[in-house]
Structure formats: structure tokens, C-alpha cells
Design a protein around this nucleic acid. Sequence first.
RNA 1: GCGCGAUUAGCUCAGUUGGUAGAGCAACUCAUUUACACUGAGAAGGUCGGGGGUUCAAGUCCCUCAUCGCGCACCA
Length: 705
Amino acid sequence: MNLPEKYKKPYNSKDVESIVYEKESNSGLFNPDVLINTFPKKYADSKTWTTITPPPNANGRLHAGHALDVTLKDISGRYKRMQGYQVLMLPGSDHAGFETQVVYEKKLEKEGRSRFGMDREKLYKEIYDFTIANKDTVTDEIKRIGASYDWSRDTFTLDDKVVSGVQNTFIKMYEDGLIYRGKRDCNWCSKHQTSLSDVETTNKELVDTFYTFKIGEFNIGTSRPETKFGDKYIVVHPDDKRYEKWLDNDTFEAEWISGPTKFTVIKDESIDMEFGTGAMTITPWHSGVDFLIAKKHGLDMVQVIDEQGKLMDIAGELKGLKAITVGRQKVVEILREKGLIVSEDTAYKHVVPVCYKCETPIEPQLKDQWFVKMESLAEMALQASQDGRINFVSEQYKKVYEYWMKNPLDWNISRQIVWGIQIPAWFKNKGEDNQEFHIGKTKPEGDDWIQDSDTFDTWFSSGQWPVATLGFSDSEDFKRFYPTQLMETGRDLIFKWVPRMVIFGLYLTGEVPFKDIYMHGMVLDAKGQKMSKSKGNVLSPIDLADEYGMDALRMALIVGNAPGNDIPLSVDKVKAYKKFVNKLWNIARFVLENTDESMDGEVDLTNKHIENFKNIKNDISKNIESYQLHLASESLYQYVWHEYADVVLEEIKKDLTDENKKVLRYLFKQILIIAHPFMPFVTEEIWSDFVDVEVNGLLLVQDWE
RNA sequence: GCGCGAUUAGCUCAGUUGGUAGAGCAACUCAUUUACACUGAGAAGGUCGGGGGUUCAAGUCCCUCAUCGCGCACCA
């Protein structure tokens, strides 16, 4: 027969992938509007199926995790589109405020520059250009994975409509009493010079010296002597017998760092009598726990360490020293000379919060910032999970989510960085306490108003992503596509992103933003280690695809990857699926050599092979529906190789009757359909040799009944 | 400390409502130009981490212990 030349060689992904993607993309069928217009019979009256794709940070290149992310949702999307849904997979990019600024700061550092002292607008413009350039690279790489995304709706978190809508949300929340400005302890990173939310810190175990100091009759423990300059309160538990002779608010004078100091005894139940001596001093400005005690008892709060992490005036001659290093040593020296050290435990292990980007220990600071009151919002989000309006594909994340929603902490949304959406708030007399402010997008009457220079926590805008990308509630797209079906994203975003989308979705629209939540695991190296540049074990999805083909990589990422579990990826595994792709190619060769289009008519549906296939197909459909893609892909592999090729084809080869050829051809075309979502490139390519695509359409829109 | 996972063939992992264990890779035997050597046929390999319980029946449900991983919080 007329076998195309290309089948005489093994499958070569390089000859195929970009051409196929272009063909599919140029057809416009990734856009649901075009889908309806082109195939009205199939799509005009059908339901929508929507997924808003997590915006990859527009600050770097794609890694294997992105490839998994795109593949998982693309399989579902392609499947639903073939089934006849108006599929919208909406792509976007995130300016990723703090993350991008950190990346850009590193770049500046390399160039011997610094963002501090740079003109705000100039810096913004530079980061903007940098981000846009990267965004284009990232977009191209996502396309290589085969993402059937509607690029005509591509959205950037700094698009006008998003910025405006996000600011509106802030104003609405303020009016609803859900946002307040308050002096509260914040997680301060002294390297990056910004406050961070609780989920932007991570924990690090340190071995420090734990000191016990003598203050009058009390022995107090601390691992942070450098904060003790301003301490003038001794706090003990009200039931502690050791200190029962002291009454609440009793005072005494004792020798301390800067000389004789007046101390006040405070009794508070939050003290752990078992720890240390059961007595401690407090430093409310630099400790969240101490802050709560001070607030409760109305105590003075004094700043000891400045925003660069240096000791302030109160430290007298030690002023200006780096608090945590030299400052600490000097204070200890002073106290040693005064004979106030009772004991030193040099092997004290404790865990401190550090900046999740640079691991600089967080220095809590009291600052005026914008906070979101989380309690009622979290309650709404908890309800949605408990009553099943949102469904977690893997239960373990439901538990984590619900735990977090039951224990919400108010959310600091102010960031002292320029890269982001500026907060629509205006101040008079900036710098003083209790300053007057005005909330609104435009400057109020009068000359002395200046806009808050802070920007929103990036998750404040990306939390609104499902609503924002669809144009907020007054747009046509919103009415058509909201609420969406699937939110598929990495397990690391269970706190940062997912609950916030649920909260904003419910708050802004009354409806959950998505029904199914699929949290995928991390892609690890072959040994199960986290991929990192420093370990040198990073597998680039683009490099792998260059060598083995993207279809092979997609399969390697899906098979054996149960929802939510981390997945090791090895080159051997990708190779194995490259063989599978080639197997499909060779089957196509055989079928093309032995059949032709005249055999495309009716087949005997009671044929045993067709009956068997029907069961496999049902099984695969069921597993895709429930996001058990590892099972679906496994069945596909087993069927194609060990049933169709090893049994059906071998049997029919020995008895090439017209009827058998028809069965062979019919089944193979069906295989192309069920294999398409998993391996879009090779299947689409082969499809065009079986049918006239001009007449019958791309494989992309064939019926999956 | 609290929470969440994991522990199944040499390795990496599946195993959906309980019905006496599966895949890929590796290793072994055979076939030798076949649509496909990026191949085919075959065989081998597991007391499902330990212990206890529920059940006619447990890899699967419950309890407990151990080891590993992760997350959250904190003690000054």
C-alpha cells in the first residue's frame, strides 16, 4: 500500500512535535469559542469544563514539576474536549512579587548593584522587562509540553483588569471590616527588608547557647541575650510556688546590662513552669509570644533591633553592632563581668523561623501593616470542604487544609517591595503612629496625602486568580466558566495558594472557585532526592524531551504516580516510554501497510477483540474521570502492547481476511483516540495518515464516547 | 511537641468499595530479521516493616511498636 516514507524509520519526535502543536494550536480549537463555531453539533449545547492553570512564576525556566503539572491537567482537558465539553484551559503568568524580586536582587548583586536606594519607578521598570522576557520563554516551554491551553485568554497578574480588580477586593474587604491596619508583630527579613506572612517562613534547627542570667532573686533563661537591653518585666506563672511571695506588679531593682534597672513582676498563665527556671523576661517588640503577653497586660514595648538587624540607641555603646552575632557576644561579656551568668548550655537545640528564600533568621518586628482577619473567611472555606462543595482528589491534603482552616492566623498582606500591586491606601503624616489613612484608588483631596509604598503579598492577587482570569463577576466569561472544575497544582501550595483561592472565590462570588482539587507531589530524581541545582541532579523536561520525545516524558511522569505522592523520575523510565511510543509507531506502520480507508465502514461490534476493547476503554474513562491517571495510563500501556500488539495483531496477521483487517483498523483508530490525551504528538501525527483531517477533523476533537 | 504520609519482587512504584499479590526497570533462559531488536516467547523472584485485633476472608479496616520522609508550632 502507499505507506508514507517516514514509517520506514523509527519514530522521531523532533520531526513531529512542533509541527503537531502548531497544527493543533492554529486550528483555534484550544479556544472554546472556536470549538463551538467549528463543530456546533458537538459543542454548541454542551457543558463547559474549565481549569485555570497555576501561573508559573515569570522569573525562570521550567522544571520537571511544571511538566508534571501541565501533563496532568492537559490529559484531563483533552479527554473532556474529546468527550464533547466546551473545554477552557486558561493559562497565565504570575508576577510572583517577592519571589521575582529575590531573583532580581540576586541579579543586581552579581552586577554590583542593590535595589536599596534605587528609584522606585526605575526598579519596577527593570523588573518588569526582566519578567516579561522570562514569561515568553516559559510560555514557549509550556507549549512544548503540549498544553492545549487557550492562549487567547492568557492573563498576567499585572494586567490592568487584574490590578484593578485586586485593588477593588482590598477596598471591599476593608469596607466589610475584614481588613485592618494594625501594629502587630511581623516576620521581618533583615536581608530582604520586608515583612513576610507566616507561610513565607520556614523552620531551621539551630544549636545555640542557652544562658541562664541572674536578675535580683530571679534566674531567667534565654537564647537571645542581645534582645535583653530593654527588658524590665519578669514573667512567672501565677501558680508557681517558687515565686509565690511575689505578687502581680510587684517591683524591685536589680543590676542589669546597662546598670541598676527597675523590674516589674508579671503573672501570666502562658508561662511553662517546667521550662528553664519558670521565669523569663519579655521582649515584646521582637517576639510574637512576648507581644501577646505585653498586649494583654498593657506593658511597654521597646524596639531594640533595627530593620537592618543592628542594635539601636538603647544598647548604648553597643549601638550599631549586628545584634545576632557581635551584639550577642558583647552582651554576654558584659553580663559575665558583672557575674550575672548562672549557667551556659552550649548544646541547646531549637528551631527558629527563617526567611524561606534566604534562610536569614526572622527578626520579629512590630510594624504597622495591613492584615486580613481570617477567622470568618477560614470558617467559610472550612465549610466548603466539609460539605463536599470542594473535593480533594487525595484525602491527605483535605486534612491538612481543614487543620489550617480551623487554626487561622491573621494574614499580613503588606510587603515592603516595589514589585507588585501597590496597595490603594493613602497616608497623611507618614512615619507617626496612628497616622490618618484613606482607602481608595485615587488620591484624596489635599496635598499632603501620599500613597502607601507597600505592595500586596503576591498571594493576595494570585488567591483571586480563578475570579480574576475570568474577568471578575460582571464579565461574560465569568458567567460561562465559573465555577471551574479542576484546580491541579503542587502539594507545596496547599497553604500558600489553594485555601486562599477558596476564600476569595467564596467571598467575592458566593461560590467555590473549583470543584476538584488535585494536589500533585514533587518530581524527585531517580534516587528519590529532591532535585536541586546544588546537587546537580536536575532533569530538565526540555532536555529530556529533546532526547526522548515529549510523549515519552509525559507517560513517564504519569505512570506509577498516584495522586499526591512524590514521584522519582529517571532517564531509564523516560527511555522505557520512548520505546512504547515507537511501538505505537510500528503498529501504525503495520496497520497502514495492510489496510486502507475503504475499510473504514461498519465493523462487527460483537467481535471478541472489540468487546474486549470496550471494557478497557470504559476502565480508562472511569479512571480519568476520577483523576486516577496512573491507572488509566497503565491500562493503556498494557492494552496497546500486550493485548493489541501481542495478541490481536499477531492473530490477525495469520488470517488477513477483509473482515479481520477492518477490525484491526477500527481498533487502532480507537487506540489513537484513547492514547491521545496521554501522548498527543505521536497520536495526532499518526491520525493524519489514517483520515483526511480536512474532512474528519484533528484527533483533538474526535469523539470519545 | 502536634499532625500527615510511607514501609509490597534486587531497584522504582501500583494495587479504587476487604475476596489467597501486579507493572516498569534490572537480572535469567530461549527465539534471530519479524510491523517493530526501541522485538518476541518463557521462566524466576514477595511469610505485603514487627506484633495484636475485627472478619468466613486483611496488603487493604482498627490498635500498637519500629524505622524513614514531610508539614506545622513552639520553650523565653
